[in-house]
Amino acid sequence: MEFDLFLRYGPALLTGFGVTILCWLVGSFGGLVLGFVLACLYRYGPAPLRWVIYAYVEVIRGTPFMIQLFILYYGGPHFGLLLSPIQAGILSFIVYGSPYFSEIFRSGFNAVPHGQVEAARCVGLSEGRILRRIILPQMLVPITAPLTNFFIILTKETAILSVVTVPELLYETQTMAAETFTFVEPFLVLSLFYWLMVIGTSWVGAKAEARVTRHLRKA
């Protein structure tokens, strides 16, 4: 292995890693928030809105991420939506992730026993408070693991952003490989970076899970 290559390409790879993390974090959390809003609208909203959300979830889940990205990036200008690669990448990430998140939240809503909501209504708690104080903390118990899991899946989906020239990790790695005619070294580094993101996410997820299941531990 030629380690001086890493001295030359190190900064570019690190910048790529930074862009990957940026797109991943902003895109995933955006998708998480949008997914939660969709799940709430689905639960509390009127029937026509439910159909719209249902259709959105099915369409987005039923098409490949790369197609969604192409439509947004190349098709966007036709509708006056002129986006930089990174903007298009983040926005499509939000769109792509949201229905999966909303399905996770939907299952979480269903996992909270209805009797607890009734008990809360009986003492006069408002629906908003019930959502925040009774339903949310409890739905976190079954959904923290799937949420972590989906965040992990999304770390690697960022690689697809390279097809619209987002200067993220895979893009920089491919540049390095092409310019230096090396293959093993750049992709080893690439794997190492993804692996760092994955173990970081797992670690945070495990902490979060311990926190939200605190009350279930036997004294």
Binding site: Q116, A119, A120, C122, H215, L216
Partner: peptide, 17 residues
């Protein structure tokens, strides 16, 4: 409802509190 207390067969306590 504040004037009407209710107790259920399944207790329905909030487990995280």
């Amino acid at each position: 409802r504040q004037h009407i207390g209710m107790v259920f067969q399944q207790f329905n306590l909030w487990p995280h509190m």
